[in-house]
Nucleic acid binder design. Structure first.
Lengths: 170, 170
DNA sequence: CAGAAAGGCTAGGATATCCGAGTATCGGTC
DNA sequence: GACCGATACTCGGATATCCTAGCCTTTCTG
């Protein structure tokens, strides 16, 4: 679950922030509210997901990489391609694959034809864990169990616009 | 800006993941899509925000804490209250206030009446920086410049449901 | 009123992410 | 055929977040 040491607040802290923001004459209150909401949604979701993945020995980041390899044609991809797909920094990929490799879920192999490139290849154990993890995530609805199908769709729709505008894809 | 070492992908990586997910017979594809979207939205937004805040010497986390103190009645709050409001772990508050104090934007003072409690108090310099930072954030629309007013509202609406269900407020 | 329980904060350890810099390799150019 | 820019990956440093554990203080309880 998300971090919650205390009882629920008697009011919505985001709505409260909005009131103060406007009262101070600061601009962009609506964007502030949305930004704060996204940050909190991310925090709640990630906490639940990582808890659900705990028994599999995975984190969300590692699961994403493992799933990507699982779906790939040959069960292997260059480190760089992984970063492109997951939209993360090359050094983050190095770190993620390091951990997966330590657990025997992935194996680094040389690229036949380009000695600069390192391939990350999913192992049979990796495939087993990926399947188990996907079931665990579906079980907790990826930490978004509070949302309806319509709510999920609306989120995706709005964010897809943002992602395209940010240059993720075209 | 968000991390983007390469040119945009010729396809939407999230939609691609959805196809693979469904093709493998894995459950919860819609939730997976929404979760992936939220994670990416958070990443894009935070990268833009932190870049906009760079000249002020702030990060988004530090700005949130600073703004909270700015809006508070006495310009000071107990460390614990800050964590409650921002929904973060007590140790994260310690870290955040440490940095703000190093920059002279906040000052730790003892609580008159409860020697367990430490108050974080915003300084005049802190107020100046907070105002400047709020303008910088409004300028870049909190990193959400791709979204319309309706998009922002839809995001907030969907996420408020999640936050309530997660026990943030009541 | 003394001891136990609860509350408030911080130190240390772990993970993930980014950036800058460094090493190795590939390719195109003159 | 040698050189230099572009590519591919990794190392070290920085920030933010969480958790566990610990110290000190306050409050409750018998």
């Amino acid at each position: 679950m998300a971090y919650h040491p205390n009882v629920p607040l008697p009011f919505d802290p985001v709505a409260e922030a909005r009131r103060n923001w406007v009262a101070s004459g600061w601009a962009g209150a609506d964007a502030m509210v949305a930004a704060t909401s996204i940050a909190r949604a991310h925090q709640i979701m990630l906490a639940r997901i990582d808890k659900a993945l705990g028994p599999c020995g995975l984190t969300f980041s590692r699961f994403e990489a493992l799933a990507l390899l699982f779906f790939s044609r040959r069960g292997a991809l260059p480190m760089g391609k992984i970063g492109d797909r997951l939209q993360v920094h090359p050094t983050s990929v190095t770190n993620t694959i390091d951990r997966l490799e330590e657990d025997g879920l992935v194996r680094r192999t040389p690229h036949p034809g380009d000695r600069r490139t390192v391939l990350a290849e999913i192992t049979p154990a990796g495939r087993r864990v990926a399947r188990r993890a996907s079931a665990a995530l579906a079980e907790v609805e990826f930490g978004l169990s509070g949302l309806s199908a319509e709510g999920l769709a609306r989120l995706d729709e709005a964010i897809r616009i943002l992602r395209r505008e940010a240059g993720d894809f075209e």
